[in-house]
Design a protein around this nucleic acid. Sequence first.
DNA 1: TATGTATTTGTACGATAGTACTAGTTGTAC
DNA 2: GTACAACTAGTACTATCGTACAAATACATA
Lengths: 193, 193
Amino acid sequence: MGDDDRSTDGRKARGHKRRTEIIDATLAVVQRDGAAGVTHRTVAKEAGIPVSLSTYYFATLDDLLVAALTSVTEAYTARIRHIIDNRDDKLRGLAELIAESAGTGRERALAERELSTLAARRPALRPIARRWREHVAELAQRCTDSPDAVTAVVAASDGLCAAILIDNAPGDPGYVHAVLRQALGVQPEATRQ
Amino acid sequence: MGDDDRSTDGRKARGHKRRTEIIDATLAVVQRDGAAGVTHRTVAKEAGIPVSLSTYYFATLDDLLVAALTSVTEAYTARIRHIIDNRDDKLRGLAELIAESAGTGRERALAERELSTLAARRPALRPIARRWREHVAELAQRCTDSPDAVTAVVAASDGLCAAILIDNAPGDPGYVHAVLRQALGVQPEATRQ
DNA sequence: TATGTATTTGTACGATAGTACTAGTTGTAC
DNA sequence: GTACAACTAGTACTATCGTACAAATACATA
């Protein structure tokens, strides 16, 4: 009756943990070498496990990429949902989240974009990639009644991310916030929360 | 003194033509199978030429992808420039260009996005990918004096493209135009050309 | 403790990749 | 026409890929 992880977790829990480790290793590879660099071997090396263990949890490479994209998207949508539920100045929260992409999470954001591009070509992945967009839309709906404004905010959010990544611009939350407000159509002196 | 293409073109011109053919074949492969499907062999097969001919014009696979991205981006920026120079209702022209992505050019637009994502990871390609963004900005500057509005339009343009591609939405020029106007911050009854 | 299942590992096979190499062909300039 | 350079083509080498497979180990449960 040891008290280390192995004994207390149970097989099912440990299996789930391994799965998560492999997904994390996959994301690390995507961050470092891009989606094209993802192979069972590179992932296994990153995770410090034999190749056959990677194929044990993800029979095909496609399964692995799907799982990685799902994981990334769920994490992102969770953050947006948190802003929607707990934040008064939602647009500001969104701006900070976007700006953060340029800071510590730049490579991470790049990986997300790469995986989302991958999703455009795989119908099975489209619903997943679409989800974060729906969450941003829901956030925007709390700030305006205009459908066009909602669409503009969603599109601008995506475009701002891309701009920050490609232009390698500094992710200034204030600047991003100003642009989002512009897309929202609010007057600077009369911002709706 | 023949009058067929081979004789009149000269060696240099024919070489350039071959180069273009290979680039087009590359874009066709990207459209069909994505950037990951681009290999010297698939491109050569698509172009109907032996593999070694592809490597003759593009020593490495990277050279080929760089050339393909450059070609795509130049074509796109040329169209934007045409709108800037010859169109009165510039925002409308931009909207139509974006909406067109969902119609006949959907696969094409998808290829462009894929290649642009590729560019985010290769510093050498960033200036090229950035160029179309600068052109859109220039277009927007003809419609407003607000820097934030310009940024919003550029970001929204990119985001709208992505939305159309991923959500597979219908590319309605009127709708796109409305959203762009929203980003621009003009009132529906007082559109500044 | 015994057993069955989940997990882990090492190894191997066929396919395909990038790219180098050599030889043949074509067009141009003298 | 002759020589030179550009172009075209076939082939082969090495590396790495996805994936399959069998054996070994660990662990929960009876």
